[in-house]
Structure formats: C-alpha cells, structure tokens
C-alpha cells in the first residue's frame, strides 16, 4: 500500500480532515467517506458531468480528480446548496421550470450553472448552451434546463 496522505478541506462549509491513499478519486472520497451521494458516477471519463462538484468555485469532474488535490480547497456538492431557509435560487429555478426528469444529471447541471453564473451573471443563451454542453441529460430535457438557467439571468 502506498502511504496515506493527510488532507484538510472545506466540504460544504464544514472543516474536514482525512487520510486518503494517493490514488483515491475525489468522487469515492465524497460518496464513500461522506455519503454525499448527490455526486453521481456515470461516464467516468469527464464527458457527462454527472459527477460535477465545485472546487474553489470551479466546476470539476470528481471522477477524474484525486482526493489529495482537494487538500486546502473548498469543495461544494449539491448537498451543500440551500439551507434551512430554503433551496438555492438555481434549485428553485429548476423546480419551477420542470428542468428535471429522472434527476440523475440534475446535481451536475445545477452546480455547472452555479459556476457559470458566478463568473458570468448575465450569460446569453448561446453562452449558457456552450457552458452546459459538457453536461448530458439522458432524458434529453435540455429545453427546460436552458429555460431555467435563462430565468436566472437579470
């Protein structure tokens, strides 16, 4: 066995310390050690976006990122959005527009949308489509998803 590495990160706002093997993937650390099952494993090769998490605000494929790389970072999963006062505005927009069918891709789409709006609060439809083109919805519910994101643009 390779030696374990100590990591410390902010996970959905909480300080977390852990010991991980170097080859542990971030997705497994989040799902297996922290039961953050909103992080979905699907294509496992950075194409589908179901495993998207935010690392220091940037969208990342947790399936192809080492847990040790999260050392010192702030990681957000879908479970970290919203709070006792209610859902995150992006979650609300997806609900209002029916922008989900089976829901498997939804955490990834919502986090990708958070990342987009953080850097570009007023994206055009073309920019929304370009940014979200890396997230795949197998139910093909793209129209409602784009509409939900557009509703957040002021």
């Amino acid at each position: 066995m390779t030696p374990a590495h100590k990591i410390a990160l902010t996970l959905n706002g909480d300080q977390v310390e852990a010991s991980v093997a170097a080859h542990t993937l971030l997705i497994d650390f989040l799902r297996d050690s922290h039961a953050l099952n909103g992080v979905k494993r699907s294509c496992d090769m950075q194409v589908c976006g179901a495993c998207t998490v935010l690392v220091d605000g940037r969208p990342m494929s947790s399936c192809t990122m080492l847990a040790v790389d999260a050392d010192g970072a702030s990681v957000a999963t879908i479970e970290g959005l919203g709070g006792p006062e209610g859902l995150d505005p992006v979650q609300e927009a997806f609900l209002e527009h029916g922008a989900l069918q089976c829901g498997f891709c939804t955490p990834g789409f919502i986090l990708a949308t958070k990342a987009l709006l953080a850097t570009n609060p007023s994206p055009s439809r073309e920019e929304i489509e370009h940014h979200l083109s890396g997230n795949i919805c197998r139910c093909t519910g793209y129209q409602k998803i784009i509409e939900a994101v557009e509703s957040l643009v002021h």
Binding site: Q46, V47, G49, T52, R58, P59, M60, S61, T64, M65, A112, A115, L116, H130, H131, S133, G134, N135
Partner: peptide, 11 residues
C-alpha cells in the same frame, strides 16, 4: 475556450 467542456478547461 472551446476545448472539451467547462470542467476539462478548468482542470
């Protein structure tokens, strides 16, 4: 700005 997808571009 158009390579692969936003996640690949970020990493």
């Amino acid at each position: 700005g158009s390579i692969a997808n936003a996640r690949v571009r970020a990493a």
